[in-house]
């Protein structure tokens, strides 16, 4: 088990290096020149060339790449932003914390509401509760996050004046963004939980559980739900990716100075180091999240755990 996860963590290194290579090359392939954007509009050709030298953009591609890789992976130095001239590692810390907070809140919201909706639908199949839950899920899945965000702002901030429309501060600033990001997850989870719950409720071991005289609550939450969660865990991985993507847009709408907003500004300004750092960090977060999903699999399902354990035994021989 431990060996399996150690191996998975080692595998993250080549993955992250590949991501770094890709994003480095992509940024230099897309049109736009950071030096041109930094100098004033009526700057002379000489000023522009000086800027390029200052940023190190005049060097050959491979030299730049080598410098970038050694700085990033050997010295853990992400460099300075072209625009603000400040250290990226210092800037990105609080931003990453905010994005993670938003992401975790959104994930918690999506999972709790999704599971509740899914269970309600499955235990009242073909009744009005089922239809209601599935309509909510359909709306959630069809509505783009940015539009949901705007509607939520209109209702809770403008009309009811209950929650702040933008900015950062206490937890109340995170409620609307978390709902906007998590809504899609709620809908996907609800649909997945409903269908896997229906499978599980019809299975023999649930009948066995009933035949022991357990209450309906015990049957559902102790016997059916943990089994229904196994296929749901798979989609959590995909959902996490969706969520980070979504948070870029949502952070812009709610003006949350997180990684999303930082990345967007970086892309618009062709601020190469900022974009590279953001993407590398996101890929690391994503790898860790996927690893946690796999770990969760093994926690829930002893059969999968046994497989990890047995593969370990085989390797020891």
């Amino acid at each position: 088990m431990l060996k399996y996860f150690a191996k998975r963590i080692l595998w993250m290194i080549p993955i992250v290096i590949c991501v770094a290579l890709l994003i480095f090359s992509l940024m230099r392939l897309i049109p736009g020149d950071p030096a041109r954007m930094l100098v004033s509009r009526d700057a002379t050709e000489e000023e522009y060339l000086n800027k390029r030298v200052e940023l190190g953009l005049d060097e050959p591609f491979l030299t730049q790449l080598g410098k970038f890789l050694t700085d990033t992976f050997l010295h853990f130095d992400f460099g300075k932003s072209y625009m603000t001239k400040t250290s990226i590692s210092r800037d990105i810390g609080p931003r990453m914390v905010r994005t993670m907070e938003l992401g975790l809140l959104a994930a918690a919201f999506a999972m709790i509401t999704g599971i509740l909706l899914g269970i309600t639908a499955a235990t009242h199949v073909k009744k009005w509760q089922d239809s209601l839950c599935m309509i909510i899920a359909l709306v959630g899945i069809s509505m783009p996050a940015f539009w949901a965000a705007l509607l939520l702002i209109m209702l809770f901030s403008v009309k009811l004046q209950l929650l702040p429309p933008s900015g950062i501060g206490g937890i109340q600033y995170y409620i609307l963004p978390a709902i906007s990001v998590g809504l899609y997850g709620t809908a996907t989870f609800a649909r997945q939980i409903r269908s896997s719950m229906l499978d599980v409720i019809g299975s023999d071991y649930v009948t066995t559980a009933r035949s022991k005289g357990l209450t309906e609550r015990e049957v559902i939450y102790k016997h059916a739900l943990p089994n229904a969660l196994i296929p749901t865990i798979t989609i959590i991985g995909g959902f996490l990716g969706q969520m980070f993507g979504g948070s870029i847009v949502i952070e812009t709408i709610f003006s949350i100075p997180g990684m999303g907003l930082y990345l967007i500004t970086g892309i618009n300004n062709r601020d190469y180091p900022v974009v590279q750092t953001c993407v590398i960090l996101l890929s690391i977060i994503f790898c860790i999240a996927m690893l946690l999903v796999d770990l969760a699999y093994a926690m829930v399902d002893p059969r999968i755990k046994a497989r990890y354990a047995s593969s370990k035994v085989k390797r020891n021989k």
Binding site: D204, A209, K212, G213, L214, N227, P302
Partner: peptide, 28 residues
């Protein structure tokens, strides 16, 4: 519910599927 499993109990047809795969047999 008091009668189920207590006064009347049932043995099911297919042992492969009658046990919950993710609970320890002892707990079941």
């Amino acid at each position: 519910r008091d009668i189920r499993g207590n006064e009347i109990a049932m043995i099911f047809q297919d042992p492969m599927t009658a046990l919950n795969p993710i609970l320890r047999v002892g707990n079941q």
